[in-house]
């Protein structure tokens, strides 16, 4: 029995799956924190729905990462027995829920990307990715619709909701650049037709985001400084707290089956 963190062999393909799995798990976890506390019951349902979609995506991606890695790790070992420095998710998805505006803006920024991303990944030469993409694309399309409708309602709602939505955009904007970044390992997968180049999605993402933000009578920040680091394990302070909660039982009762 051991409480130690697992060792992970981060080959490019494995790491690629792991990063997307971490994105989905951490964002899904954040959404699940709302359960029972949302502004309306309909929203409790919707946030749980999106959280469940993301958890499902995470599980498929972890399972694939484990298969590619071939070292006997599995979805739960990846989720529960890695420390902050071993997590590979985007900084955006680990940002705390804050108020409902922040949760929805975070969801919108991510989903507007994920929708384009998974649609493009349906053409991956890797059949597992293509299959996960086909399912995830449908889910992401709903996430974009739901979150963008809220961004518009909040931006063009009351003075207070406008202020909150604008603050959320201003605070989260610097975390959006990381979605389009590529490292050398990923470049190889792109060249092989396994992954797609996210830079090719940027213009369309920006068009969607600008369109909704304008409709919401909100504005995007002028600053183009972007935070990076999640993909290599340099996270914000928030992730450690999330993980200490997420992993508490596995860490307290090492080796038990649940």
């Amino acid at each position: 029995m051991t409480v130690a963190n697992i060792e992970v062999s981060e080959t490019p393909l494995m790491l690629y799956a792991l990063r997307r799995a971490d994105d989905a798990l951490i964002l899904g976890h954040r959404l699940s924190e709302w359960c029972g506390h949302a502004p309306a019951m309909e929203e409790d349902m919707a946030l749980a729905n999106m959280g469940l979609d993301l958890l499902g995506q995470a599980r498929e991606l972890y399972t694939y990462a484990a298969k590619v890695e071939g070292r006997g790790n599995d979805e739960d070992k990846f989720a529960y027995l890695r420390d902050v420095r071993q997590y590979r998710n985007l900084l955006l998805v680990e940002q705390p829920n804050g108020d409902f505006a922040r949760t929805m803006v975070r969801q919108f920024f991510y989903a507007a990307f994920a929708d384009l991303y998974w649609r493009a990944m349906m053409a991956s030469s890797d059949p597992t990715f293509a299959a996960i993409a086909a399912k995830s694309e449908k889910e992401s399309a709903y996430h974009v619709r739901h979150s963008s409708e809220w961004v518009v309602r909040l931006g063009d709602g009351t003075e207070e909701s406008h202020r909150r939505a604008q603050t959320a955009i201003d605070d989260l904007w610097a975390y959006t650049g990381e979605m389009f970044a590529v490292d050398d390992g990923e470049r190889g997968l792109i060249d092989a037709g396994i992954a797609i180049d996210p830079a090719t999605l940027k213009a369309r993402w920006l068009k969607t985001v600008t369109g909704i933000v304008n409709e919401a009578t909100l504005a995007l920040p002028k600053s183009d400084w972007m935070q990076q680091g999640g993909r290599v394990g340099s996270h914000s302070e928030h992730l450690g707290h999330l993980l200490s909660e997420l992993q508490s039982l596995q860490r307290t009762f090492p080796g038990a089956t649940w």
């Binding site: 924190e33 359960c35 729905n49 469940l52 739960d76 529960y80 997420l246 039982l249 649940w258």
Partner: peptide
């Protein structure tokens, strides 16, 4: 217990249940 469910399968099942 949703945020502390001990496996991803349990977490998904509990979230779906509370939903």
């Amino acid at each position: 217990w949703i945020t502390r469910a001990p496996s991803l399968r349990r977490k998904a099942a509990l979230l779906a249940k509370v939903q």
